[in-house]
Amino acid sequence: MLKALFLILIFPGFLFLFIFGLWAEYFDRKVYARMQNRVGPPWFQPLADMIKLLAKENLIPEEANELFFRWAPVVALTSVVTSFMYIPLWGTKALYSFNGDLVVVLYLLTLPTIAFFIGGWYSTSLFARIGSVRMISQLFAYEVPLLMAFLSPAIIANTWSISGISSFYKGHPLYILINLIALFVAMVAVQGKLEKAPFDIPEAETEIVAGGFTEYSGRLYAILRLTIDMELIVVASLIAAIFLPFGLGYGKIIGFALYLIKVISLVFIFALARTVLARLRLDQMIAFCWQYLVPLALIQVLINIMVMGLLK
């Protein structure tokens, strides 16, 4: 019981995710700044921001629905942290795993988007409403290719559990190469979930101030920012666990180091994409997702089904 509490709250649970999330935000901002020839923030900047936000006053608009406004960020944070429990980090076994936890994790990762939408909608501010509607429209665009990309390795592994997928590919490492298209589709579609350029339409600063987060301030805003940071780590770990499951049999220390390297390289690639691409318009983004990403994901699914058939 005590061991379970330690695992969930400290390592590799909440505290580890907290520290790693804040460090990843620092890394992302520093790399972004250096690529633009600037200096960038010092290492304690995200922690300082968090502390400052916790000390500020919570302003709730008069016409907003207080219940939803207050609880939406908390729901988002909880679902993100919960989904981390099912992802294997340095071995092939996650903290808790069961057959079907891949679907559960993907569902739990959709929940923050819905929670942000509800929080923004019930803010009743004009900008917040436009931003939250954009968030849901974006969800329709990237969700389908994202789910297809994540589910295609599961077809070959013949199991719906992330830990099971991990151990399958550990045993047959060459099959990782078949899933490369899905890796590409997942990395592009996940920019929509994380709301990073070129898909950062819901939080377009120059058009609608801050989108769904406009009316948030103080402690609730701190929870929102923490959710966004943690989401980055959770999604990067999920991609590393499903598409890059190599080097998992070398024991705990080396496995953990490899995991860190994988996640940090993914964060670096996301920061690079953020730097060199402009923001797309909503209709352009939906057109792009449905015209290019969905066919690619379908091709990957077909390839995997054929490989499954050949293996039999």
Binding site: A33, R34, M35, V39, T275, V276
Partner: peptide, 15 residues
């Protein structure tokens, strides 16, 4: 990503 080359080079230059 036309600017990728420039961005990566800036990474290693003095700000």
């Amino acid at each position: 990503g036309k600017m990728i080359k420039e961005a990566l080079e800036s990474l290693f230059r003095k700000p």
